[in-house]
């Protein structure tokens, strides 16, 4: 009983919060509702017994990704409402809805009870992290490694982009030198 109540509560709240994210004119509201929606999605994982994935959802999406978004938003005035300059609301609405419908048809239409099957059955006695680990390191080892290499490349790229002038200290350079460099 508790599970069902929680499921419907979480569903309504998640949809409502993501609607706020889309429709709000205020960055702060959009960001807060997106983050809280992510927390509630972690709730679904907990309801289905996937504790590990739920916590990973919390740590990665709520703790890291959304916080980075928030850090990006430090550079805006978040208390102001945004004026969107849409040329035509009708165009936006028609395009948005049709693209959404197309996506749903593309991804959801092939799913019917006959085609759904478990591609990698979890070990019956394994605990949550163990089950994830077993699947990840046997059946899906190659995609896992590819993703790891991709993340490594992204990290190196980030370090190179950000670390170009890292060995120069701004506090130890004269003001004139800094200004001259900026002019160049």
């Amino acid at each position: 009983m508790f599970e069902q109540i929680a499921f419907y509560l979480f569903s309504i709240l998640t949809i409502g919060l993501f609607l706020v994210t889309v429709f709000s004119n205020n960055i702060l509201y959009a960001m807060t509702s997106l983050a809280s929606g992510m927390v509630l999605i972690a709730g679904f994982f907990f309801l289905n017994g996937a504790d590990f994935l739920g916590v990973v959802q919390l740590i990665v999406y709520v703790g890291a990704v959304m916080a980075l978004y928030a850090f990006g938003m430090m550079f805006f005035n978040v208390t102001k409402t945004i004026k969107e300059n849409n040329t035509s609301n009708v165009t936006v609405f028609v395009l948005g809805v049709s693209i959404a419908l197309l996506m749903v048809l593309m991804f959801a239409a092939p799913i019917s009870p006959e085609v759904i099957f478990v591609s990698a059955a979890p070990e019956p006695n394994a605990t949550n992290p163990e089950a994830v680990g077993l699947v990840l390191f046997t059946k899906y080892l190659v995609p896992f490694e590819v993703a790891a290499v991709m993340l490594l490349i992204a990290m190196i790229g980030g370090i190179i982009l950000a670390g170009k002038k890292m060995d120069q200290s701004l506090t130890k350079t004269d003001d004139e030198n800094i200004i001259q460099k900026d002019i160049k």
């Binding site: 807060t32 504790d51 919390l58 740590i59 703790g63 916080a67």
Partner: peptide, 16 residues
Amino acid sequence: NIGVLFVLGMMAAGLY
């Protein structure tokens, strides 16, 4: 059964 991670995750969410 993943208490450590849960606590760390909640503290991560606490940064909001």
